[in-house]
Design a binder for these strands. Structure first.
Lengths: 207, 207
DNA sequence: CCTACCGATCGGTAGG
DNA sequence: CCTACCGATCGGTAGG
């Protein structure tokens, strides 16, 4: 009996892990955490469900590992945009235009992190999100405040981190009617414009 | 055999239905749709789970009935505030201050409506929400545009419905750090102020 | 990497 | 309004 070490046609493959993460990303981003069962992921990978557990200890670990890859990708793009030699508003527009393409559905993701992960996994993802995504964007807002361009908290504005979370809420247009035919680039530009200038009519012409 | 009509100590009670809705509202608003099982609701009401089905055909029906009561309450308060003789910005502040108290967690509710209800129930709730909540607030934005106070879509602004959804997204501060010690009234005022004037520094002093 | 299976939980029904 | 129970699905494990 000691001939069964587990060496089928494709066992312990190191690339299967990447396939799982790829498939999991697509499914989790489309449907959220709960509705995507470990059996769904396995089937989409062409393996059985228990085989998943040779690469990840729990379903939560699959989700977190996938999220980490997404955050790393996003971080690279953010650093690139934030470091450009452009005005703060211009760079805010660039960031806002890039985010929805990489991000897909931030609202769903926040919901899953809050409600489906246990405390350790929640801590891990929250920290990574803060460092890789929030921090770069917040530095942009901070720069605008240092220049006197943006209102600081004591001038009726927000601190840099609050402003960043607000930007995320603005960009999230799921459930808004008419969001289908509007291009996401137009929407991003519009939201940044309103965030900067507000809805009140500017008086540079007449009324 | 026609002696079993079902008449235990407390059967078919008409007030049990109200108790169920009351309990369901508390649980659903605290935890969301999925985690609150029909057994939880029944236990909190002091009855068994199958007894629920004497008052509601499905779990979704409980949720929708509860939502309808909340929307009706909210509608009354909105009509009252919107009809006041105050400026549009003042009434927007009043509405923004009232919403979080009645609403609790709009993000969770939207998520549940989208992901946990089937198409008929989703339609029902979406229509009620649009008519009882969105419409009154949108009329306020429309009034502001008619006065030339707020930017219309062709002036870089939003139409009244889009502006209303945006207001909801602004008021939703779940997950924002520091949202614990900030009073919800302060937060509401701040968000309306930013929605109206933006984050750009106004030049009415120097700089 | 597989087959087989566990314990738990769910919404809902049968039958009285 | 109750007891008892159904069929389905879930995450995860045993054992090879």
């Amino acid at each position: 009996m000691p001939s069964s070490q587990g060496a089928q046609p494709a066992d312990k493959t190191p690339e299967t892990r990447q396939l799982i993460l790829q498939v999991a990303q697509r499914l989790f981003m489309e449907q959220g955490y709960r509705p995507v069962s470990t059996r769904h992921i396995a089937a989409a990978c062409g393996i059985t469900q228990p085989a998943l557990y040779r690469h990840f200890a729990t379903k939560q670990d699959i989700y977190v590992a996938m999220l980490m890859e997404m955050l790393a990708l996003l971080h690279g793009r953010l650093e690139h945009l934030v470091g450009r030699h452009e005005s703060v508003p211009t760079r805010l527009h660039l960031v806002a235009r890039m985010l929805p393409a990489t991000w897909i559905d931030a609202r769903q993701m926040f919901h899953d992190i809050e409600h489906e992960l246990d405390e350790p996994h929640r801590q891990t993802t929250a920290n990574a999100f803060r460092q890789q995504v929030i921090a770069p964007i917040a530095s942009l807002f901070a720069e605008g405040m240092a220049q006197g361009l943006l209102r600081s908290p004591d001038q009726g504005g927000l601190n840099a981190t609050e402003a960043t979370f607000l930007l995320f809420r603005l960009l999230d247009d799921h459930g808004t009617p008419g969001s289908r035919d509007r291009s996401s680039l137009q929407h991003a530009d519009r939201m940044v414009d309103i965030l900067l200038h507000g809805l009140i009519q500017q008086r540079d012409g007449d009324t």
